[in-house]
Design a binder for these strands. Structure first.
Lengths: 200, 200
DNA sequence: GTCTATAAGGAGATAGAC
DNA sequence: GTCTATCTCCTTATAGAC
């Protein structure tokens, strides 16, 4: 990181927090600068406009990984034990979702859903669809290797992911009431229930 | 409805639409009045403040029914046919969710999640929890009457509702891309899949 | 890179005529 | 109930000194 980027990153971090709490329109450059400890005008030394800050937040956090980065070797080697695989993955995913920056970003996406930024529409849907695609792949693989029973990988993916998103909304949305423990517990219950439906 | 309430209701309707699209902070009284066809000051003849409009929107739409009002006699008499019951209910629920005012209100709740209004916190969670409670009751009933297999009604409720919310987010969130047909199709697939897990 | 000062317009809200 | 006119404060953003 360049030396001069320190303040810029501080502005980005504070912006993410404030935007996620009060929305883009609900946050003034004044709010923002005072939370960083600068004057308003100093902000414009790092960003050309308020909207440019939002754009850069989405550049930084916006490339949804849909949990793809969680698929390390340890997990891949578990593909032949689907229940263990799903349980391990869920827990990793929820821990990632429980991270304060992830929570802020998710809240921001919910608040700014539909807003256009640099010609790209902010969309909750894209988050859901990305996750779905990954799991269609995984269940296709599992079906091909006969680790699970025959069936539509699309339906399997929906049925597996939907409750995880539900859990995220219930336990990992309000930063003052993060309940990772309950989230993981409920995810385990889900995986167990789901496994009964897809085991051979 | 009183005679003088006509304009007031028009203001409420337009506000719901604009707030849901641009957020509360992103909508000015000016935007609002011009969309109604009045001057700003005329708004204050019906509401004491901009915030009072938001409050009244939540009074009008806010009492989540969680689908309770969908439980008519026709449905209640189907309790002994759980699959048919769930399928009929889902379709009714999705049709309700596909209503343009419901979509606007849901988007508003997502945008203003966490905002306090008259001391009450706007919360997506309360929507989820309300729905969950209703279905815990239903599955308890079904279990007691041995229409479905033994199991935790709470888990059954989560597993049944979560995919419906997922479907709502996917097909009934963006008012310019409402896809009720796909929503109902996917809900039927879900019900069928879920039924296999809970039938005796 | 941050400061002070300032521009130019938008915000919510009120007063009083019709 | 709606209008015109107006108030006061806040908003994003820029200019130029240090």
């Amino acid at each position: 990181m360049k030396k001069g980027e320190k303040t810029k990153n501080l502005i980005l971090a504070q912006s993410l927090q404030l935007f996620s709490k009060n929305g883009f329109s609900g946050t003034s450059v004044r709010d923002l600068s005072s939370s960083v400890g600068l004057r308003e005008s100093a902000i414009y030394n790092h960003f050309s406009s308020k909207k440019a800050i939002l754009a850069e937040i989405f550049e930084k956090f916006g490339q949804s990984t849909a949990g793809l980065n969680l698929l390390d070797d340890e997990l891949i080697n578990m593909l032949n034990k689907p229940q263990k695989f799903m349980q391990t993955f869920s827990e990793k995913l929820l821990r990632k979702w429980g991270d304060i920056e992830e929570i802020h970003f998710f809240n921001l996406v919910l608040k700014e859903n539909g807003t256009e930024i640099n010609g790209i529409k902010i969309s909750v849907n894209s988050l859901l669809e990305d996750a779905q695609k990954v799991w269609v792949m995984i269940f296709t693989e599992m079906t091909n290797h006969k680790f699970i029973k025959k069936g539509s990988p699309e339906i399997f993916a929906n049925e597996f992911i939907a409750p995880l998103f539900f859990i995220r909304m219930k336990f990992l949305l309000d930063e003052d009431n993060i309940d990772l423990k309950s989230a993981i517990k409920q995810a385990n219950e889900h995986t167990e229930f789901f496994w009964e439906s897809i085991k051979r």
